[in-house]
Design a protein around this nucleic acid. Sequence first.
RNA 1: GGCGACGUGGCCGAGUGGUUAGGCAGAGGCCUGCAAAGCCUCGUACAGCGGUUCGAAUCCGCUCGUCGCCUCCA
Length: 371
Amino acid sequence: MRFVHNITDVNDKIYEAAPGRSAALARDATAWYLEDTAGFGLGLPDAQPLATETISEIVSLIDELVAGGHAYAVDGDVYFRIGSFDTYGALSGQRHDQVEEQEPSPLKEDPRDFALWKATKEGEDTSWESPWGRGRPGWHIECSAMAEKELGAEFWLHGGGLDLVFPHHENERAQSLAAGRGFARIWMHNGMLRFTGEKMSKSVGNVATIQEVLGDWGAETALLFFMTAHWRKPIDFSEETMAAARAQAETFRNFFREARDEDGAPPAREELAEALDDDFNTPDALALFHEWRGRGDATSLRWGLGLFGLAGLAVDSAAPTGLVDLAERRAAAREARDWDEADRLRDEIAAAGWEVRDIEGSPPYRLVRRL
RNA sequence: GGCGACGUGGCCGAGUGGUUAGGCAGAGGCCUGCAAAGCCUCGUACAGCGGUUCGAAUCCGCUCGUCGCCUCCA
């Protein structure tokens, strides 16, 4: 398995957002993205190609399409000729005759044609030389070129959100297939993360940043939240759904807080494989985790959670010595049947953000950080 | 207007012709000095209306609703 994540670091919005310093903004924004997503602790893809470092491959691919009659150059732009590709629309099911009216472009042979290369316009400070003049790659070709560079002419899976099916993926497919590549064998389109039932939108203000979510709920709760719904379906981010995910995370943590013997038996890999082989059914996998929990199978549970970046649920944090001291005093008070003093100390511990639970053993208590 | 996804018990969410999903919340009980944690018990739901079938949440049709997309954002 080789996992590649394309990064688009040149487009109209970047030019608009940072006139005169678009390259710097693209670099910064890429870094922000990587920093934010690193907070999930899931590691990195095998490759994260940048569009701006794939220009020569992009130009070659466009050149091929022009030579093959699938694209044409006009005034420094190059457009894909949709009429030359007979299965255009097969991926999205879009009907050409029903596409909403757009402002017609005088340069295009057909309004449905889309740009592969755009001539540099005034105010655009990032551009490259090409057979058609200075310019920049179009909106979809860079993904075709990056995928081929990293994975070859044909590969198994192409992922992306449902909102990208049309036009982006339809166009990627058209470009690569028209150029004679096999391209993606299987397309996987995930449902959208929604905020109170709607797509998150900066203009509406219904946005929660990754940093905020990780700060408010922690990485484990966030990852568990994503596991609760099948990847194909939309998933709603809300206080309620996150609180439920956190409660589940806490349930797993409590399980590992109980000392138990692990007899060295291997994890029940086949059981989890069965759930994941069924279209990567993570809710089913999560149900299995709860089954393992009920069964007391710490080995399997530790292994399974680890696969989803949730190994932290099996690790408890040690209490500060000041709180241990309070807990010791409370244990002594309980020994002396001084319940008032014991309860007072319990409240004091709670005020510090911790919880004291009475258990069998020595010491006769467990200190748990409250989330 | 078109294309697509989705609509399951209080909430989240699997399941796709007949058999327990699971979790969260809630109720009762056990345990506990009291709690917490844990354990036990308790829910017959599938947008609506028709149809197919011995039998449908699951298949077909229509309707309603939510969300996404409709090419120079990727």
